[in-house]
Amino acid sequence: MKKTLGLLFCLIGMLIPVNASHAQNNPRNLYDIKPGDTLWEIARTYRTTVDELKRINGLQTDLLQVGQRLRVPIMYEVVSGDTLWELAQSFTSSVPAIKASNGLSSDVIRVGQHLRIPPRKLSMDGKFVLMTRDEFKDWIFNQKFNRVVRKIQQHHTFQPSYKEFNGSNHFAMLQGMEEFHVSGMKWSMISQQLTTFPDGKVAVGRPFDMPPEGSFGLLNPAAMHKIEADAIAIENVGDFDAGHNQMTAEQRETIVTVAALLMLKYGLAPSVDSITYHHWWDINSGERVLDNGAGHAIKTCPGTGFFGGNSTVDAKNNFYPLVRQKMNAIL
């Protein structure tokens, strides 16, 4: 555990971009939350707005926690060799955003020029935050969560499947799932914390510090709440039973990457205890049956074709090794 945490601290440090040419002029665009901080005060300090800070950082609430990190706009003095593209890469921004923020009509910048560099805004709709894999990596390590998490649950949506995804309706699909969960299942909001899509995007829905709702043990509320208390639920859009949707390479990479990042965030190692499939649980009693599902009410979820299948053997042979490799690659 100590080795894992040490590597994690190194990783978090590496997430702060540093370029050799900026060694004497490298302002930090990460702000560490201190006791008493508010979004309004931070926004005033960095000459921005609360709404902009929330969209830059994918914040679902105005509440801040000590130890949390926020991306903030910075002022930067141009040095020899700088380009807008390099500055955008170094400070999680974009060339168009830098140009718009500074009223630039061309990409030409000069030594000594002072530029305001705003970090990229994330795509948000209400509490839903839609991200690329790289954006999610930055997001997850800058957040501070209080709930203890010991396992992540892998699900497939079954319905909606690939045919309902048109490449741009991420938020509409999330809202549709939430409507079903609230109106149909009588849950408080969308059940899952994370949703992956065929194009490789990943969305945050239910806040991480709230346990998932209704993911296992539907007819046994006591067992369900016990199972979900220390879980993160992931819904992977698609029907991954063999012979149905063929998982895209982009979604496959996102599922592996998200699992690896969650393992690192919570100090876990891939196993049947830390990465669990819906198929391994009796949906009535909440009993974990693993591969002994005969005579039990079980679902095929996350699919009979999910990374080779939905048994523990399939997970150990085809999914966990990929997650371990990704964890090593990230570190």
Results as ranks from 00 to 15, higher is better:
84 L>Y: 02
298 I>R: 07
194 L>P: 02
293 G>F: 04
268 L>F: 10
48 T>M: 10
152 I>G: 01
190 I>E: 00
92 T>C: 04
81 G>S: 04
227 I>F: 09
245 N>M: 07
39 L>S: 09
107 D>L: 05
209 D>K: 06
306 F>D: 03
23 A>Q: 07
162 Y>F: 14
91 F>G: 00
146 N>R: 09
39 L>E: 08
132 T>E: 15
149 V>W: 06
74 I>V: 11
11 L>M: 13
111 V>D: 00
55 R>E: 12
317 N>E: 15
70 L>G: 08
7 L>K: 15
279 H>Y: 13
200 G>Y: 03
209 D>G: 12
23 A>T: 03
314 D>T: 04
17 P>V: 13
67 G>F: 12
113 Q>I: 08
99 K>F: 01
11 L>Q: 01
312 T>P: 04
217 G>H: 14
237 V>E: 02
78 V>F: 03
118 P>V: 09
192 Q>Y: 04
316 K>A: 15
177 M>C: 06
297 A>E: 05
93 S>P: 00
185 M>Q: 10
318 N>L: 05
198 P>D: 11
219 L>T: 09
27 P>N: 13
281 W>Q: 13
207 P>Y: 03
119 P>D: 13
53 L>V: 04
39 L>G: 05
121 K>S: 12
170 H>T: 10
96 P>T: 11
24 Q>Y: 12
132 T>V: 14
85 W>R: 13
128 F>R: 00
152 I>Q: 02
241 D>N: 15
250 E>P: 05
324 R>N: 06
207 P>Q: 09
31 Y>Q: 09
196 T>R: 01
187 W>H: 11
329 A>F: 02
102 N>I: 14
113 Q>R: 12
302 P>E: 12
31 Y>I: 12
274 S>V: 03
264 L>S: 10
138 D>N: 15
98 I>S: 08
265 K>W: 00
34 K>H: 14
208 F>L: 14
66 V>S: 10
157 T>Y: 01
20 A>F: 11
24 Q>A: 12
190 I>F: 01
42 I>F: 03
